[in-house]
């Protein structure tokens, strides 16, 4: 624990770097996400994470297999690729939230210590949920995918709510507390250079995003 505590900002810079790199890769992959749903249309990973009914994921996957072969191959490669890259993204994102909560807990009163320590360690649950989600989705990507049962669909929805709920709550609490410490000047000047590194990382990420790219159009039917 002491190793983490002593080097938490350093670890955070590293995990943020991994998070931003994997985000960049996944955003590139998303550009190839197409499905045939009456017409060829774009979809996002959120459509797979929040299906409205048990039929939505199968319909979307079947729509990919209904695309012309060239686009089908590109989309399947991108989708599977994104789910695999997500395994690298997970430790980065949940690790970052863990570290933020962990650092915040150090500066808190006893009640705050308990709260933020809990929030930090609870990140193992969304991480596990994310792993289950990716395995579930990877197993769903085949041409004759059946619709899930209602029970499985319901369980999947709860899995998503748990994943997004726990991570969002922890992230919001941690960032709000950090903002509070920043505004009140309650921070160690020695940690400022880590903040500069984080800002530079995010700046580079935004800068790369701003480079104009050719729009990806689906291969002709």
């Amino acid at each position: 624990m002491e190793t983490i505590s002593d080097n938490a900002w350093c670890w955070l810079c590293m995990s943020m770097a991994v998070l931003l790199v994997t985000t960049f890769i996944m955003m590139q992959q998303t550009r190839q996400f197409f499905t045939l749903d009456v017409v060829v249309r774009h979809f996002s990973i959120l459509d797979l994470e929040f299906p409205g009914s048990p039929n939505e994921i199968p319909n979307l996957v079947k729509g990919i297999y209904a695309l012309p072969l060239e686009q089908q191959t590109k989309t399947l490669l991108a989708l599977r690729g994104q789910l695999w890259v997500d395994f690298l993204f997970m430790p980065a994102v949940y690790g970052s939230i863990f570290l933020i909560c962990f650092k915040v807990a150090e500066k808190m009163n006893p009640a705050g210590v308990v709260l933020f320590s809990w929030l930090a360690w609870l990140q193992l649950i969304p991480w596990l949920c994310d792993i289950i989600e990716n395995i579930y989705l990877l197993r769903k990507i085949h041409p004759n995918v059946p619709a899930s049962t209602k029970a499985v669909h319901k369980a999947y929805q709860w899995l998503e709510i748990t994943k997004w709920g726990l991570s969002s709550i922890a992230a919001v609490c941690g960032l709000s507390a950090l903002l509070f410490f920043w505004i009140t000047g309650d921070f160690d000047a020695g940690s400022l250079h880590y903040l500069i590194i984080l800002v530079v990382e995010i700046g580079v990420f935004i800068g790369v995003q701003l480079i104009p790219r050719q729009p990806v159009l689906p291969s002709a039917i």
């Binding site: 709550i169 919001v172 709000s176």
Partner: peptide, 14 residues
């Protein structure tokens, strides 16, 4: 109280 208010603001923003 200030800290709690910041956290509540964060929640509301979320």
């Amino acid at each position: 109280w200030t800290g709690a208010c910041f956290i509540l603001t964060g929640f509301w923003s979320l």
